[in-house]
Amino acid sequence: MFAFTIRRIAQGILVMLIISFLCFTIQHAIGDPVRDIVGISVSAAEREALREKMGLNDPFLSQYIRFLGKAVRGDVGMSFFFKKPALEVILFKAPATLELVFVSSVIIIFISIPLGIYCAINPKHILSRIIMGMSIVGVSIPVFLTAIMLIYIFSVELHWLPSYGRGELVNIGGWKSGLFTISGIRHLILPSIALSSIMLPLFIRLIRSQMMEILETEYIKFAWAKGLHKRRIWFIHAFKNTLLPVITVGGVQLGTMIAFTILTETVFQWQGLGFLFIEAVERADTTLLVAYLMVVGVIFVVVNTIVDLIYGLVNPTVRIQGTR
């Protein structure tokens, strides 16, 4: 397990290096750090002097190494619009997005697992057919449409839930959280349902089909022949094996989910990273865009590494190979 962990972490670092290189290339090609610092009302000669001083005329590779060295220390440049370090701006907005993704993931896990298992063990039941039918409809509706429908029904018509903003927040060591107030939670409901709506049908279908396949295996037949209770067979013998492919897909789909936060946050005016990203695009705030990509890259790599480690815990074969 230890060697396995080390290998996964090394892979994560490699992926981060590649992401940082891509980010730097983008910044190098379209960004203008001089403008970011002094604005546009400065003479050409002064700008050239500043370029030279900032090392912007150095070879590409040495600039990249300098960029990397700073990035490791948490410095990815200044945001042109906010006139603040880009990372600071990002970290200030990150809790909103992370809480949205977290609540959506919880919704996905707690709904897709029971429904997927139910459909797998009662494939012919009318309820299973309804769930499967709805999941087909679910995957084919775009997120922004789901979001707008939710707002129309629950905010405009019924007045049950708020449709924009995060509501009342609690500051916990610099982390502004909406999870601890009634208002914060009410504001979270619609956006997180909208965000989970793309992944939920997919996971129900995945869990169902994996579990149905597992239920046909010899080891499940043997478990029946041992006289085990059906609950043990379903929830321990079959489900544990079903989890393996689901964990893998889950790690990959997290990237998709982060991409969809951009849409969701825009519709719900959710002050998170996705919203910030759209604003940065509109303002051509290159440094902020690059910082966004880097931070999302780190989140993605960290989560995938954790997912792989969980996979290793569930699957004994991986663990053993890792120790060799």
Partner: peptide, 12 residues
């Protein structure tokens, strides 16, 4: 059963 490679649950 016939095939001992398939009869035991791999994750238990």
């Amino acid at each position: 059963f016939q095939d001992p490679m398939m009869t035991l649950n791999p994750v238990l």
